[in-house]
Design a protein around this nucleic acid. Sequence first.
DNA 1: GTTAATTTGTTTACTGCTTGAATTATTTGC
DNA 2: GCAAATAATTCAAGCAGTAAACAAATTAAC
Lengths: 385, 385
Amino acid sequence: MRQENLRAHNLALVLSVVASAPLPPSRADVATATGLTRATVSALVDDLIGGRLIEEVGPAPRAGAGRPAAGLVISACGPGGLGLEVNVDYLAACVVDLTGAVRHRAVRGGDQRALPAAEVLTGMATLAAEARAAAHAEGLALAGAALAVPGLVTPSGVVRLAPNLGWRDVDVPAALSGALGLPVGVDNEANLAALASPAGVASYVYVSGEIGIGAGIVLHGELFRGARGWSGELGHVCVRPDGPPCRCGARGCLEQYAGQEALLRTAGVASVAELAAAVAGGAAGAAVALATAGEALGVAIAGMINLLDVDTVVLGGIYAPLAPWLVPAVEAEVRVRVLTAGWAPVTVRASALGSAAAVVGAAGSVVRGVRDDPARWLQRPAAVR
Amino acid sequence: MRQENLRAHNLALVLSVVASAPLPPSRADVATATGLTRATVSALVDDLIGGRLIEEVGPAPRAGAGRPAAGLVISACGPGGLGLEVNVDYLAACVVDLTGAVRHRAVRGGDQRALPAAEVLTGMATLAAEARAAAHAEGLALAGAALAVPGLVTPSGVVRLAPNLGWRDVDVPAALSGALGLPVGVDNEANLAALASPAGVASYVYVSGEIGIGAGIVLHGELFRGARGWSGELGHVCVRPDGPPCRCGARGCLEQYAGQEALLRTAGVASVAELAAAVAGGAAGAAVALATAGEALGVAIAGMINLLDVDTVVLGGIYAPLAPWLVPAVEAEVRVRVLTAGWAPVTVRASALGSAAAVVGAAGSVVRGVRDDPARWLQRPAAVR
DNA sequence: GTTAATTTGTTTACTGCTTGAATTATTTGC
DNA sequence: GCAAATAATTCAAGCAGTAAACAAATTAAC
């Protein structure tokens, strides 16, 4: 750790205090919150304002005597983040600003399995370019882009395997970064969707139901990726050791009970929308299928909570629209099977973002990178900003 | 973060490089490893040598020209840590030095359930005083003490509940800290035992088999305690949703297949030692019992690895002596059920420390505290050292 | 055997960051 | 209008790390 890291760390510290304060804090408030002196905070704040990361707002009316404080807020016209998503039947893009607000969104439907990876990425690049133009029109300078894919991704951004897209060893950053003129990160959609569901909780798990079932594990506010980056494979947690064989080679994986294919097959319907309509209309088969899936999901989730002691579970992907029927079954299993459930309540709820969670989370991960290391943003040449 | 934190951080950085180097590194080696300059490293090393945290060793013979380097090693006569353990049928104490070497160990048998908590702690205090005298005789100054207990502990060190000891709301630090003249920390035995099994791996899980089954989860070198401190309840992960009822109220928990009681009952023996002797002697019933337990343990551990992506599992407690028969069964399940097992190998092995893991881990947690923040040790008055 | 080369470790002048006190600015209350 | 109070800035000082020169101790070469 060197001296410049000290300053970088303190810039991030000030920014995080401003971001998490309920009301716009003054420089003096930030100083007491961080333990730094007012002189230091002033210097740091000047740097952050110079880089358009925070802004002063008019003095809030306050009781008592004294010079009024200038409130500080995260700037809504500083750097933004570009989120991208490739999924089986659509492409999506969105732009968020530093406050986390979504400023632009676009979705383009179409089956991507029929196309080779290079062609899909070309389509993605045009959608991204439109989003970049929209961001520019809003006065946002993009700090980078992140792509969500349903598959295993290496730390360098290569998609090692995305079975449902038919991708194998696709070097996404090489294909997109040059075309966009932005650094492009790539991550699993469950991981990125998890980051989009903060809800003010520090530790939670986002369960992503798609063809496969993934879990994005957030511990102490940080995504937990595991020793090698392959954590959260909830879909292959065992529900019944001698259950039906899974395409992974094992038997009785959760995916065989609560994966999209198993769910639709058991219910005898063709799509998730159809399933939701059927169960809402009182179809017995659909209700049974959802009860079975909810129970299996509950068993796997209860085991996860026993191990990780998280207090919140967010159901996303196809589970979000089906939540009214799934949540009670999951909660019932959790209540019985989690050892500490009696005195440490667990909340199970649906993702509020629905299918947009992954794109929004991807864009959010970019601005999160700026907020975690503002110094890197500040020291880039002004021409880029 | 202030300036003195910068120095404190760099002191810890230098100390950790010296600790983890395979051979005693020179100041120049430390400089290249840390990215600091040789001048800065020299100044930091002088501070650390002055505080007896590291020592110079004679120049190692080296090829090539140049002034010979003075090797640096963690000092074996600097601060030490006192580890204590209260368990159902014994009290234990041990002293480790800053290198992690055990310098003193004492165990006093005796059923602790018959005695009130205050009396047990008085016995613990005398054993601890003897250990402190032994540490003094070896030239070690104790930096603190840590007590391992089989129960739930609050962050402040109060034992909220230890069912097998019959303890409830026992304020251990208040009882021991004054008598010993040392700060006393308290933690669950599985957590502390987990810390005693480093093996040079950053992320691993220590599975503690006792009456219950616990797991100490170490991620990125740090113990993961969960949102509320109750992580690692592996014993109540579900193996078969409709299995035998468990005392926790659920069905088919791992404890019902691989807990000590289930294991001994299935094998038809009275103790773990007897079980090990039976299976070594070729008894079929014992072998079947161990195979069943190993399979169930494997299913639960595979699920855990799917979620956490750790690459090493350490079996401790009663599983350590039974490891030759359990490890193959666990490995077989892991191979089949962990999605990434094909390209990311998982190691399953027995704890080398056996029943001493918790005391040694407790003592280790104290010296770990010194190594993680050497500045605090350096700035305490010399009289205490 | 003397000298050059090489690597280690220390000294010295310097830059950058935070600090603390003094100063200025802007309001409320009397 | 004036004192009290609070916010923000300015400026000299101190401390940590840096870079480059220097001293020390050894090997290799002639």
